[in-house]
Amino acid sequence: MIFERRLLTRDRGAGILEKLWQIPWSFVLLLGGVAAIGYVALLSAGSGNADLYAQKHAIRFGFGVVVMLGLALVDIRLIARFASLGYLGGIVLLVLVLMHGNVGKGAQRWIDIGPVQLQPSELMKIMLVVALAAWFHRASWERIGNPLFLVPAAIAVLLPVGLILKQPNLGTALITGMVGAAVFWAAGVRWWKFALVGAAGAVAAPIAYERLHDYQRARITTFLDPESDPLGAGYNIIQSKIALGSGGLWGKGFLQGTQGHLNFLPEKQTDFIFTMIAEEFGLVGALTTLGMLMLVVAFCYVVAFRSKHQFGRLVAIGLGTNYFLYIFVNVAMVTGSIPVGGVPLPLISHGGSAMLTVMVGFGLLLSAYVHRDAEMGPMRE
């Protein structure tokens, strides 16, 4: 990914005040509403004690808003210029995790950067989207149709996927691959090339299954038959389904959820936070939460449609797909539709890395929106 030094073409961009005026503040309020749902759910997960989860959630969101608005003011052309450096930085962090990362629950996924514990695999997805968008920017149909042109971009996807699998973190690795595929699709890569990759994946699936860790194979077996190990691997999903069903239409009420507060529901502040919401606020609360989350996804694609340059369009589509996959995987997981994996519900689950990563992504998205009319010349030699 080689870029020209001359990126800032023609104008130098609008002033800071003008950029602030162009920020869609209704979207910022929407994010605040989603984070508020998370605050209430985490307050309940802490049995009314805000110090356990909710207060940290609010502080992280507040810091994230500052980061997001700061990135929104950065010229999109500057972001494109340093896309490859961001990608390389993400790769370095993934390597450092494997060498010196902290181990938790059998996986080595976190690294300490000063007082902050970061999960680089989350940030890598954002860096990958930006790097791929820069690679495909202004590429002609002929170049995109050339398999040799796609090889560097494919390696750029497979490298972080492989490093994340080594942690091991199968769920995040799969999402990273799917986010990369979404950018490929949006850039105009022909469908038959995806079909070839899919066929190769189907052939390799049995071999890959044999190479999975024992707990990963147990998750797949439990997904197919949760009752086969009701007190072991199947416990989480069985309790989640009980909590989801017991909430009914309107729920049991705030702080009244029995599965959560009697500690039957595992990881209620992180992976299973949606189950907490459904039990205490019922189907109405669950659908309201999903509706607000999907409005966030819809805005991402609105930015893509309104962008006049390929870079901003691909960034918005990639980030929107990443956010959607967060939601889809988490909700499908707690409802028993897919095997259980450690994927949080964005802006709602407790967790600093996920919050920071999501807000960085939204900052880049807002930069694409604010600079949607920017003149962007070719970035490859």
Rank of each mutant, 00 (worst) to 15 (best):
L132N: 07
F149S: 05
P226E: 05
V334D: 04
L319N: 06
W21I: 10
T270R: 00
A139V: 06
V66C: 11
L159R: 13
G86Y: 03
R60D: 14
G86T: 03
D271K: 07
A195W: 06
E227L: 13
R6V: 12
A202F: 15
I16T: 13
G15F: 08
I277G: 03
E279K: 00
D229G: 06
K166Q: 15
A133E: 08
M294E: 04
R77L: 07
I155T: 08
I37N: 05
I220Q: 04
G342R: 08
A181D: 11
P339Q: 00
L287I: 03
A199K: 13
I111F: 12
T321R: 07
G318K: 02
R313Q: 15
Q259W: 06
V103I: 13
V189E: 10
G251L: 10
Q117W: 06
G361V: 03
W25E: 00
V189D: 11
S349K: 01
E375F: 09
L293Q: 12
Y215D: 08
R380Y: 15
Q119S: 01
T288F: 15
K193H: 14
H213E: 12
R372L: 02
I238M: 13
M127G: 11
L262C: 05
N102K: 15
E280Y: 09
F82H: 13
M333V: 04
G248L: 05
A205S: 12
A332R: 00
H137R: 01
G145C: 00
M333S: 03
L170H: 00
T172R: 04
G106L: 03
S140G: 10
R372D: 02
L69G: 03
A368V: 00
V360N: 04
L366N: 04
C300K: 09
V334S: 07
N102M: 14
G312N: 05
R77H: 06
Y326K: 08
L365I: 04
A154V: 05
E227M: 14
L8G: 08
F264M: 00
L94H: 07
R313M: 15
A332H: 02
A134Y: 07
I59C: 03
G15E: 07
F274Q: 02
P168R: 05
I111G: 09
L42E: 02
R372S: 04
G101W: 14
A374E: 14
T222D: 00
I238C: 11
D11M: 14
K105D: 12
I37W: 12
V161S: 11
R77K: 11
G341D: 15
V67G: 08
K19Q: 06
N102L: 15
W185M: 13
K193D: 10
V74C: 12
L94I: 07
F82T: 12
L159F: 15
A332I: 01
F272Y: 00
L224K: 13
Q310T: 15
W191Y: 15
G114L: 10
G363S: 01
W191C: 13
Q108N: 08
N169Q: 10
I76L: 12
L78N: 05
P206Y: 09
Y215H: 14
L265D: 00
G251S: 08
A173F: 03
S140T: 14
R190F: 03
G101I: 11
Y215C: 08
S367G: 01
V130C: 00
